[in-house]
């Protein structure tokens, strides 16, 4: 089918996601997990309405814009807020996007921070460093519904303080965790990372 992306006609297969035809940044979306529509970085305007490109299927005759001033402001601002609240030092993808969108977190002056969370080292294989966590949920999904069906991760809290944790907040070895590390692989910010990287 045919649709228009930023004024240009493009061809797409039925059932394809807008993500596949529209150039947008992503964060929560990952091919191995079912997380989508959470980070809102991939929002586009479809016939004037906002829609996440990662969760919207193409339709004949759609008019899609990915680069309106509003969308650019949204992405830039979101990145600024993330940088303001979260340690992105091991998230090269996000740092690259910040540069591309000219993000200046300082203009917001103040915001509550997630940086104070101490790293958790409770198993021989990987570190959980939630000061770097943007709460994209990819790890929780990889552990549960998306890949493993193990359910050793869940979410605690609400709002800005919501973050991944284990059942009963126990150390991972006391949970159903099987240490497959699929959570580590899908983590986009280095909040979960192999211990082998630490000593090296």
């Amino acid at each position: 089918m045919r649709l228009k992306v930023n004024g240009k006609e493009v061809e797409a297969k039925e059932g394809a996601l807008l993500l596949e035809v529209a150039p947008v940044p992503t964060l929560c979306h990952h091919p191995h997990t079912e997380t989508r529509g959470v980070c809102r970085l991939c929002l586009v305007e479809v016939n004037g309405r906002l829609a996440p490109a990662c969760a919207t299927e193409v339709r004949e005759g759609m008019e899609v814009r990915t680069d309106t001033e509003g969308l650019k402001a949204l992405r830039r601002t979101l990145l600024e807020w993330l940088a303001l609240t979260t340690d992105l030092s091991l998230a090269p993808g996000l740092l690259g996007l910040m540069a591309a969108y000219g993000a200046e977190p300082g203009r917001w002056k103040e915001a509550p921070s997630r940086r104070g969370r101490p790293p958790i080292r409770d198993n021989p294989f990987f570190l959980r460093d939630y000061a770097k966590c943007v709460n994209c949920r990819r790890c929780v999904d990889a552990c549960g519904d998306g890949i493993m069906g193990v359910y050793a991760l869940t979410l605690a809290g609400r709002g800005l303080q919501a973050h991944p944790t284990t059942p009963l907040d126990r150390p991972l070895p006391e949970t159903p965790c099987v240490f497959c590390g699929n959570c580590v692989q899908v983590c986009p910010t280095g909040a979960l990372r192999p211990l082998a990287l630490e000593v090296g």
């Binding site: 964060l27 929560c28 529509g37 959470v38 980070c39 809102r40 970085l41 949204l74 979101l78 807020w81 993330l82 303001l84 609240t85 917001w108 915001a111 509550p112 943007v134 709460n135 979410l155 809290g157 609400r158 709002g159 800005l160 303080q161 919501a162």
Partner: peptide, 15 residues
């Protein structure tokens, strides 16, 4: 009251 699921709301309401 922000649930914290999507990104703009918990960040934006805090800011």
């Amino acid at each position: 009251e922000s649930c914290g699921k999507c990104f703009p709301c918990p960040l934006g309401t805090a800011v």
